[in-house]
Design a protein around this nucleic acid. Structure first.
Length: 415
DNA sequence: TCTGGGGTCCTAGGACCC
DNA sequence: TCTGGGGTCCTAGGACCC
């Protein structure tokens, strides 16, 4: 095979927990969890006891009585995650960041400067270790999919290079759940037809997979099982939607419960959209009931919006419609708002002449200019004095915050 | 002890247009 | 009046990712 393996996948190990152990030497080698009421992240030592992120703190303590909970250093997570990605960026501009702690890179164009891909991977790991004090695993392969699997196999704190001549020998003995796109449901479906390894998947006829998983998923998995992965590194990906959600425990399905929460969620989402001048046309709301089943409802407008109260009122209408259709559901446990169909970039200089003031919130009116002006004033005050300096009346009070806002921010994609 | 939060992509049916 | 096909958009739900 003529081509060489130049795709890297780098993944910081148990990132948040590793940061805590780096900052506080007394936590090293111990099972720790970031969070309290809910586990936001767990160290490898804690994972060995079955502690998982998203798990209630109480359950985690039962599994691991000696578990130490720490309050997160959220600012440091952002700083160190950015720094680790920047180390990779020192080798090549072709970096595709997947999340705060994970990125792909293509080093094809810089081997003449820095050595083989394996040497570059070693240098990255060394620098992240010495400069940031953090373990990072790296996979090197000819495709993104295989590089990602290699880094998973390399964990914790390892490096795996897959030679292009022995790709399938490496890939085929592995279990299907290591593949991108195989979660619990797909794994179970494949198990029904006796497919447990990637090699078995590769030998399964295409029509059989497509019948089992649908045309798109079937075709995709079949290709990946033979390491046919055409995806390239894309360094500038724009978000396609922005949302926020809040688990609220178990509360009555009443206006006085959902209205303040929706205003708060709308505030979070709309503020982000305004900050990047990216209004959106589709508003989707999700309501989860007591039994954790959930229902969504959406509306697509003629014109994009990003005014907080317009979004909040549209969301309220959608939630009312959901509740009207589910009269037997008396308890709700989560509310979510998402805005999609967001514009590339909205230019006020161009749009303002058409945005006549009094249009209010009528779908199809341009943005709701009067309310937008009020939002801009709020945004400015928050820029200077912080988020909590000003807010939308009732929304400022009584919002249950299972998860700190700083933690939410870490998961937000750049718009 | 019922399970956090922010995203992407796919599917399937229906409306609507040519 | 009934027939057909292609394409796009919208909606709701679901699987999956970090």
């Amino acid at each position: 095979m003529a081509t060489t393996a130049t795709i890297l996948h780098a993944d910081l190990d148990a990132f948040y927990a590793s940061v805590e152990q780096m900052l506080d030497a007394s936590l090293r080698g111990k099972p720790i969890a970031v969070g309290g009421g809910v586990v936001l992240a767990a160290s490898y030592e804690a994972k060995a006891f079955g502690v998982r992120s998203g798990m209630p703190g109480r359950q985690a303590r039962e599994l691991c009585p000696q578990l130490t909970f720490v309050t997160g250093h959220f600012k440091d997570y952002q700083r160190l995650g950015d720094a680790a990605i920047k180390v990779i960026g020192d080798f090549t501009p072709l970096v595709e960041r997947i999340s705060i702690d994970e990125a792909f890179a293509d080093v094809a164009g810089c081997t003449h400067l820095f050595g083989t891909p394996a040497e570059i991977a070693m240098a990255i790991r060394q620098r992240v270790r010495t400069e940031l004090g953090l373990p990072i695993s790296v996979g090197v392969a000819r495709t993104k999919h295989l590089a990602k699997i290699a880094s998973q196999v390399a964990k914790p704190d390892g490096l795996v290079v897959v030679d292009p001549d022995t790709e399938l020998e490496f890939l085929h003995p592995l279990t299907v759940e290591l593949m991108w796109g195989v979660g619990p449901v797909t794994k179970a479906r494949l198990a029904e037809i006796g497919v447990l390894t990637i090699g078995q998947l590769a030998k399964t006829p295409g029509w059989s997979l497509e019948r089992l998983l649908g045309p798109a998923a079937g075709e995709k998995l079949a290709a990946l099982a033979w390491n046919r992965d055409p995806r390239e590194i894309r360094s500038h990906r724009r978000a396609r939607s922005a949302g926020a959600q809040s688990a609220i425990g178990r509360k009555p399905a009443e206006e006085r419960v959902f209205r303040p929460t929706l205003v708060h969620l709308a505030d979070r989402v709309a503020t982000r959209l305004r900050a990047k001048s990216r209004p959106g046309r589709t508003v989707t709301v999700r309501v989860r009931f007591a039994d954790l089943s959930s229902v969504t409802r959406s509306i697509t407008l003629d014109a994009p919006i990003f005014a907080t109260m317009i979004l909040a009122e549209l969301a309220e209408d959608l939630v009312r419609a959901i509740l009207a259709d589910h009269p037997d559901e008396k308890i709700i446990s989560l509310l979510a708002i998402s805005v999609s169909h967001i514009e590339e970039h909205w230019d006020p200089e161009l749009e303002l002449p058409f945005g006549l003031e009094e249009e209010g919130r009528r779908p199809g009116s341009r943005l709701g200019m009067a309310r937008w002006a009020a939002d801009c004033a709020v945004d400015k005050i928050r820029d200077r004095f912080g988020w909590d300096a000003i807010g939308y009346g009732s929304a400022a009070l009584g919002i249950s915050r299972f998860v700190p806002d700083e933690f939410r921010k870490l998961a937000e994609k750049d718009l």
